[in-house]
Write a protein that binds this DNA or RNA. Structure first.
Lengths: 170, 170
DNA sequence: TAGTGCATGTAATGCGTTACATGATTTC
DNA sequence: GAAATCATGTAACGCATTACATGCACTA
């Protein structure tokens, strides 16, 4: 099976326990979407592909008359996941508009350029608050899940400080 | 005109002086692509659109018998660019595979999880070196262009330290 | 004269989101 | 009984990359 970018999110989340497509989307939106997004249009077809490849197994599990399909990871699926975890190639892509603005700030008068630094700091302050709220949510996350959340918070804090430092310097 | 994500890179780069589509691509690949990529398949059609909208002006400037078309930004183009620079909405998207790996590291034995931290640090050490090489290149960049490069270098350094700190802690 | 770099452009393809259709259940 | 939420799925669309076609110019 040809792996897509959603393969690993789904396999990784299902390794923590069986879930429906809908649940997977909810979880992604509260966790990985900050560094690895996935939409319904990818999740449902990909689950089908994973099932055909035998990496996950789906089972009908309706709640009342409402249809529902829960997937669990299979042993070959776990194997595949471990293989990927041991891999080294790490795709990495960013699209950071406020950084792009900063990059072109030379066309503006000095003061307005510095305002862009302030705006960037402000944006990251907001994201930091968002992540701290996620952190404060009840529920006990496994250590590495927690570590990554902490990374996000620390990173936002660092960016804010960096912007403030540069603004002061210039 | 409907703005796309390439609109601003092109307008911003052309604000620093007239360039051909080919040159724009070269510059993007050595600078903005770290936080804002653009390919030929976007650049050439977008230049055409920008010209139709009067935001840039193209002129044939062949070198010998080799055809070549150079674009400069117009006053309305500059206006448009300034408008965007003053905007606040800042799109921001990441795809960071090594972070995704870390997020799922709980399925691995402790030691192998920590190895993922080391691998991440290693990746960022390499990127830092790449950026420092760009920085060492001759040529005098405007202050904010330089600032953004410095941001990249500092950020990579911070990530490396963060990973080392966490590895030591766990 | 072969290989590399300059230069433009597009077609095919793939990735990913958005919006929608459908319908059951829960909550107010 | 209206609204929100659970739940699945797909079609249409837009964004972006890749690969290719074309051809000139330089250099080893």
């Amino acid at each position: 099976m040809e792996e897509t970018s959603t393969t690993w999110v789904l396999l990784g989340l299902l390794a923590q326990g069986p879930k429906s497509g809908y649940e997977l989307k909810q979880i992604v939106d509260r966790s990985t979407r900050y560094f690895w997004a996935a939409s319904y249009g990818q999740i449902y077809p990909e689950l089908k592909r994973l099932e055909e490849a035998g990496l996950v197994a789906g089972k009908d599990a309706p709640t009342g008359g409402r249809r529902r399909r829960v997937f669990r990871i299979t042993e070959p699926g776990r194997e595949e996941l471990r293989g990927w975890l041991h891999g080294t190639a790490a795709r990495m892509e960013f699209r950071d508009e406020s950084l792009l603005r900063l990059f072109f700030a030379d066309v503006l008068p000095r003061g307005e350029g510095l305002a862009l630094l302030r705006a960037r700091a402000e944006g990251f302050r907001r994201t930091a608050a968002e992540l701290r709220a996620l952190d404060a949510l009840p529920g006990d996350d496994p250590p590495f899940v927690d570590l990554v959340l902490q990374y996000g918070i620390d990173w936002c804090g660092w960016v804010v400080e960096w912007c403030e430092r540069q603004e002061a310097r210039l």
